[in-house]
Design a protein around this nucleic acid. Structure first.
Length: 620
DNA sequence: CTTAGGG
DNA sequence: CCCTAAG
């Protein structure tokens, strides 16, 4: 019942982030004044459903499978049911079974059923009925993965293994995907974390996700990318899942329990089932030395800029990174409801909780595992639950927008609308030091997914020597006994693919380029940079790179240029305003001197005898 | 691929 | 750090 309570909280707190930015493809024509007055509030309902889902989850292990089926019967737009209705004993529940314990949030809404999305209901909960749906049979363990997107009328095959797997099974198992990590530490089971988002559970594993912190910086950046980044950070890992099972199911990779690399790879593969190996290699290489120049799409949903954009942008908005959250709520347009009221009818097929990482000892009991997962889950969603709306994979944050304004219309609904659950005030959890971009993955997989790979020993690495810093070779994760898997369920925005003539799935590579982890320059690096610039000037960053940072694979000449820029700025502001590791004034002075010198030099344009070295000029 | 700058 | 227009 505690869950119920939280559910309520979540409800109250529900609020879609504001989205200042206009729709990618403002289609004025789409604005039918007729609908302007309509405000969609069904999201609230969705939130309610989600909450309900939680509730179900919380009780699933001990209560009946119809915990909430006693609600309204009519107009139940969404049905929810604990996947694992039958209450199996702990002994019986294998890891897989646990995973299987996802929650079936909803079924395809019968055509006849319609959700009057526009009518704000004072009591959202009443609009959703959480009845029990068809039972999930034993084989469900093989399909615990949620159905990502289910198209009723448009059978779109995105071809990624993960997806197709799902489609194979008629049973749309929505729900929670569990990902567990076995380790020596048990996630604390205290309840202090309630309401604090997943802050609690995560800290247990500081090495899992490290970098996201700085991502939280820009708060009002309406840019989709940034938004994504933010969410990735705050809401990261919310999908619980038993990696091994997942791997075996969705990836070719043979599941090897306790094999970190394998599992990880599996996940990666899963995520990029259609990712060509070749591309992986390339990607890796790129990331290794230089920033990937491809547009980054957020977790899961990614595509090469050229291809994806070309394919979808022109049609109905550019695909954007989607939030890292789950979004396996499938909605669909009701074919026969082209009614003039232009009401959007959508059926929610399933929910999936965002990815989540938990740590639990291998020796823990299944029961404790369940408990842990449950706790982690509730802690995540417990705080404030809310629903995110995705249109073309892009989050729509402006609640005031009408559907049409957001690009949600009868014509495109089924292909563009998506939802995602997200813990409210996304708490920035203690990010775990992400693996270095140079990290060499066991197999050729998109680097992006390694973001949370454990990187022991990388924490306290106060580099004093330029050497060490310049050549910060990430230590390879060493967790033989840890089962680590990731469950980044790609939130594939419904592409307009179905509506376009573009040949479906043609080299639909997805490059999940992730923002590089922030790696503040150390004093030593600054020193090296300054020295190099003094000698080479400020217009030869490549040379600077080669000269002083040739071994620092993670520093590109662009980085150096940027750093110089900031150094110059830093040198000009008062020491009080400076942040981060303090740079010796001496260096800053040199920065200013060199900057002034080279600026002048550049201005002089005198290359008669070649640019004199600053050093020479200064008599150094 | 590099630069140079704005974001 | 990212993204990109220019060269």
């Amino acid at each position: 019942m505690v869950l119920q309570k939280r559910l309520d909280y979540g409800f109250n707190g529900y609020e879609v982030p504001h989205t200042p930015r206009a729709a990618r493809s403002p289609r004025k024509s789409a604005f039918k004044k007729k609908n302007e007055s309509h405000q969609i509030s069904s999201f609230d309902l969705l939130a309610a459903v989600a909450g309900k889902l939680l509730l179900e989850g919380g009780n699933s292990s001990s209560s009946s499978n119809n915990a909430s089926s006693g609600n309204n019967d009519d107009q139940c737009a969404v049905k929810t049911e604990p996947l694992n209705g039958r209450d199996t004993t702990v002994e019986e529940e294998t890891t897989n079974n646990i995973a299987e314990r996802s929650f079936f949030v909803s079924e395809i809404l019968p055509k006849s059923h319609e959700i009057q999305s526009y009518n704000r209901s004072p009591s959202p909960l009443t609009e959703f009925h959480f009845g029990s749906s068809s039972g999930v049979t034993s084989d469900s363990s093989e399909k615990f993965e949620t159905q990502e997107l289910v198209y009723e009328d448009t059978k779109i095959d995105n071809s990624d293994c993960y997806r197709s797997e799902c489609n194979d099974n008629k049973s749309m198992l929505g729900g929670l995907n569990f990902e567990a990590k076995l380790s020596r530490n048990v996630v604390a089971k205290d309840e202090n974390h309630i309401g604090s988002g997943f802050r609690k559970p995560i800290p247990q594993n500081p090495s899992l996700c490290s970098d996201d912190i700085d991502l939280l910086g820009k708060e009002n950046d309406d840019d989709g990318e940034n938004l994504s980044a933010r969410y990735r950070t705050k809401s990261f890992r919310s999908t619980l899942r038993i990696g091994n099972h997942f791997a075996s199911k969705y990836c070719k990779v043979s599941p090897k329990p306790r094999d970190t690399t394998t599992v990880t790879n599996s996940d990666l593969d899963m995520k990029h089932g259609y990712y060509s190996k070749k591309h992986c290699l390339k990607s890796q290489r790129l990331e290794r030395n230089y920033p990937i120049k491809k547009r980054r799409y957020f977790d899961g949903y990614t595509a090469s800029q050229s291809e994806e954009n070309a394919k979808t942008e022109g049609l109905s908005g550019s695909p954007r990174k989607t939030s890292g959250f789950l979004s396996s709520i499938a909605c669909q347009k009701q074919p026969a409801v082209q009614s003039r009221d232009s009401h959007v009818k959508l059926g929610i097929k399933s929910f999936r909780v965002p990815e989540l990482f938990i740590e639990i000892p291998e020796t823990a009991t299944v029961g404790s595992l369940k408990r842990t997962v449950l706790e982690a889950l509730t802690s995540i969603l417990g705080g404030e639950l809310r629903i995110g709306v995705l249109v073309h994979g892009k989050k729509v944050r402006d609640d005031s927008k009408i559907l049409l304004q957001s690009g949600i219309s009868l014509d495109t609904l089924s292909d563009t609308l998506g939802f995602c659950l997200e813990p409210n005030p996304p708490q920035s959890t203690k990010p775990l030091p992400p693996e270095d971009s140079d990290y060499v993955r066991p197999c050729n997989v998109p680097h992006t997914l390694t973001r949370c790979l454990p990187s022991p020993g990388k924490h306290a690495k106060p580099s004093n020597s330029v050497e060490s810093d310049l050549d910060s070779k990430p230590s390879a994760p060493n967790r033989a006994k840890t089962i680590y898997s990731r469950a980044l369920i790609p939130v594939r925005p419904l592409h307009v693919q179905a509506l376009t003539v573009v040949p479906p799935r043609k080299t639909k590579r997805s490059v999940v380029a992730q923002r590089r982890i922030r790696r503040p320059f150390s004093v030593a690096e600054v020193e090296a940079l300054v020295q190099a610039v003094e000698r080479l000037g400020t217009g030869r960053w490549r040379d600077v790179k080669l000269r002083a940072f040739d071994n620092a694979k993670h520093r590109t000449y662009v980085d150096l240029k940027d750093k110089w820029k900031t150094l110059v700025h830093t040198a000009r502001i008062s020491p009080q305003q400076r942040r981060g590791e303090p740079v010796p004034q001496e260096l800053l002075d040199r920065v200013l001197t060199a900057h002034a010198y080279w600026s002048q030099q550049q201005g002089k344009h005198l290359l008669l005898e070649g640019p004199k070295k600053l050093e020479t000029s200064l008599g150094l």
